[in-house]
């Protein structure tokens, strides 16, 4: 009997403390894409501390990571994200269009097209660069195997494709030549993985291919984690400006009463603390003056072309290049 009473008491105490926890702490769900995992782990700690100092409130932040498209679909299907930090604005546009949970003009709400940090696409090659790859033109040479995921299933791969296209269109001056160039490039691609992490595995673990087209921060992480004696990063002269936007999902934040918190969370990304951390995790900060100069020195200079500039925005780029029957399908069509 005594044992049962004891058990009841314990259960009561646990239940009470759990429910207190729920009442006491507000929780923010940040839905993000794959390569931001390490960055947000550290950023969340910094933000929670800062928020506690400013307001005295304890908050919790939950993270969800996955392929950008998959994450956006989860939100469309009802995942209640307070904050979105995705790889490309097109996915957030789609959430706005399909759910109406945020305003269509969301990208104007925060500075720099709502991108507190940006990235670009670089080449990862094997140590010593045995194939002598220095720029995009080397990728279409015979005997060079290029690893990049399928742009129809991967956001990162879309940046890879657009970067190659932007380079060619600038160099050769017209779209026909650009299409020809991209077609030649994809002739050198032996495997189209479905996501960026899959391609990295193919290149790094399986030892397949000579060049991996990768997010700059992923390339740095690969080199750091697997030893600088195995890979080199090659930065082409021109590449794409990858704007990785962040926003509040208004309807969800209002419903769960987290709007102030969500806005503070995103604004803090633009603060010296957020900018410094972004640079630490190999994202190019919007305000480099806040970053550690040592971190900044790791980013080589290159010309970054924006999607808006060459392709007239994501909506158009998606329709022309990646929709069914678009240019990407055409370059693979049997002759």
């Amino acid at each position: 009997m005594k044992l049962i009473t004891l058990a009841k008491t314990v259960i009561l105490i646990v239940a009470l403390s759990v429910s207190f926890q729920v009442i006491a702490d507000r929780t923010l769900l940040n839905v993000s894409y794959d390569p931001t995992r390490e960055f947000y782990q550290e950023y969340n700690k910094a933000f929670i501390k800062d928020w506690k100092e400013k307001t005295g409130e304890d908050v919790q932040i939950q993270q969800s990571h996955g392929g950008a498209g998959k994450q956006a679909r989860a939100v469309i299907d009802g995942l209640e994200a307070d904050v979105l930090t995705l790889a490309l604005s097109y996915d957030i546009d789609q959430i706005a269009a399909k759910t109406g949970k945020l305003d269509k003009s969301w990208q104007k709400r925060l500075p720099n097209n709502s991108a507190p940090y940006t990235s670009t696409i670089v080449f990862l090659v094997r140590k010593g660069n045995p194939k002598g790859v220095t720029d995009w033109t080397d990728l279409v040479k015979e005997g060079v195997a290029v690893i990049t995921p399928n742009p129809k299933t991967s956001g990162g791969a879309r940046y890879n494709y657009l970067a190659a296209w932007a380079f060619a269109e600038k160099k050769y001056g017209n779209k026909e030549a650009a299409k020809d160039f991209v077609k030649k490039l994809y002739k050198n691609v032996p495997i189209l993985d479905s996501g960026a992490r899959g391609s990295t595995t193919t290149f790094v673990q399986r030892g397949i291919g000579d060049v991996l087209l990768a997010w700059e921060n992923e390339a740095f992480l690969a080199v750091n984690q697997l030893g600088p004696d195995q890979f080199d990063i090659i930065v082409p002269q021109t590449s794409i400006l990858a704007e990785t936007p962040v926003t509040v999902l208004d309807k969800v934040a209002e419903k769960s009463g987290t709007r102030d918190l969500a806005e503070a969370y995103l604004n803090h990304l633009y603060s010296p603390v957020g900018q410094k951390l972004a640079a630490k995790y190999y994202y190019r900060p919007f305000k480099p003056e806040f970053a550690d100069p040592k971190d900044l020195a790791r980013f080589p200079k290159l010309e970054r072309v924006s999607v808006d500039e060459i392709f007239g925005g994501w909506e158009k780029a998606q329709a022309t290049h990646f929709a069914d029957g678009g240019t990407f399908d055409e370059i693979y069509a049997p002759q």
Binding site: K70, K98, T153, A323, D324
Partner: peptide
């Protein structure tokens, strides 16, 4: 056209919403 399975095409369509 060579080694793409039907479920992958379904995922591809989903990625395009």
């Amino acid at each position: 056209y060579i080694s793409e399975i039907v479920p992958l095409l379904i995922i591809t369509k989903l990625e395009q919403y």
